[in-house]
Computed example of a mutant assay.
Amino acid sequence: MAGAVDLSALRARAEASRTDGRQNGPAGGAAAPAGGPDSSAGAWVVDVTEQTFQAEVLERSLQVPVVVDLWADWCQPCKQLSPVLERLAEEGRGTWILAKIDIDANPRIAQAFGVQSIPMVIAIAGGQPVQAFNSALPEPQVREWLKAIIDQLRDRMPGIAEAEAAAGGVEEPPEDPRFIEAEDALERGDYGQAEAAYQRILDAEPANEQAKAALSQVRFLARAEQADPGAVVRADANPDDLDAQLAAADAELAADRVQEAFNRLVGAVSRADGEDRDRVREHLIGLFELFPADDTRVMAARRALARALF
């Protein structure tokens, strides 16, 4: 599912309508921002239109997953599934947002998602579809589906942990002894041994987000020691040279020119396509992981990256 949906037309339509929205008030269906543990379910269940899709789905999905429920009045299975999703959204307490979309009233959204049957449920994270299912699944299966998404994204999406902490639902886990060897090597400046130790963790547990983030940090530190300030000049002279752009971004980040590094790679993403685009995107995401998730520069760059991709 990931990467298979082109949402650019919806983005353009939403942006074109913003001026009218500012003059005439909020577009219909917009709900209040996600709140704390005392908020009502209305904060976490949003009726979305073509005009509000950008703000309520794509932008919100930079913080927490947004689960899109595509439904219609005539769809009987939808009437079984939608209340289940709404109840689970209330239980989730802001760890994810439910975006309800009537496909009859919003045909362009249905077209963008390639809807052939409903109910259709799609999880969006970071502006991209990550998981989906078609059918009115039983509540236990829906619950497991949601849990798997939250567990997979918790360490990468700041809003999940914030919502869980606000609800008092998460305790700090004990330190994982497998990380001690890697951390000791990193403190000694032995990047090769630290990388090997983190890689062993990932070989045994590929979904370990802590190890992924640490591995990104170690690899960057190793690259930063070799960073050539002249890479920036070469990259500026050759904007289509991806190797030069990646090296220049590393050099800029090593010189604490964070915004310049992010802007460079967002621009490279917008110019590239296919495997080249994926390569630059993955490099940029690796740089994001070097900073706290709520760093304003990272948040702004994630929004810019979402725009470049869609």
Rank of each mutant, 00 (worst) to 15 (best):
Q63E: 13
A214Q: 12
P26E: 00
G29I: 00
P158S: 14
A244G: 04
A72H: 00
N208V: 01
G35F: 04
V218Y: 11
F291P: 06
G36E: 10
Q128P: 01
A148C: 04
I150Q: 07
R93S: 12
E144L: 14
P140E: 09
E183T: 12
A41F: 04
L215R: 13
A213V: 14
N238G: 03
L246A: 06
V115F: 09
E86F: 02
N134Y: 03
A148W: 04
A268Y: 00
D6E: 09
L146C: 09
A204L: 13
D6T: 04
A248C: 12
L88Q: 01
A43V: 10
L221I: 07
I150T: 03
P140V: 06
G21Y: 06
R18L: 07
M299R: 15
A211I: 01
Q116D: 05
S40D: 13
V258K: 15
D273K: 07
P77K: 09
L215E: 06
D104L: 11
V67S: 06
D278V: 14
N24H: 08
A231W: 11
Q193V: 10
G267A: 10
A72L: 02
Q217H: 14
V269E: 01
A301F: 07
Q210T: 12
S40H: 06
S82I: 08
A247G: 11
T52N: 04
G286W: 02
A89V: 00
G126S: 05
A41H: 06
L215A: 07
R11Y: 05
G189E: 09
G267W: 03
E171C: 05
A166H: 02
A161W: 00
V170F: 08
A105W: 09
D236G: 03
P292L: 13
R93A: 15
G28K: 08
F220W: 15
A247K: 15
L70Y: 00
A227V: 01
A27T: 09
R87S: 06
D294Q: 15
Q80S: 14
T52I: 02
A123M: 08
A196R: 06
Q54E: 14
R281L: 12
I285K: 11
A14I: 05
L62E: 13
Q54K: 12
P26G: 00
L305W: 03
A32P: 11
P83G: 02
P173I: 01
K212Q: 15
D155G: 15
W74C: 04
P37I: 09
G286S: 06
A9Q: 13
V46F: 07
S82M: 13
D295W: 07
R18I: 04
V130W: 02
P140D: 09
A4R: 14
M299L: 15
V269S: 00
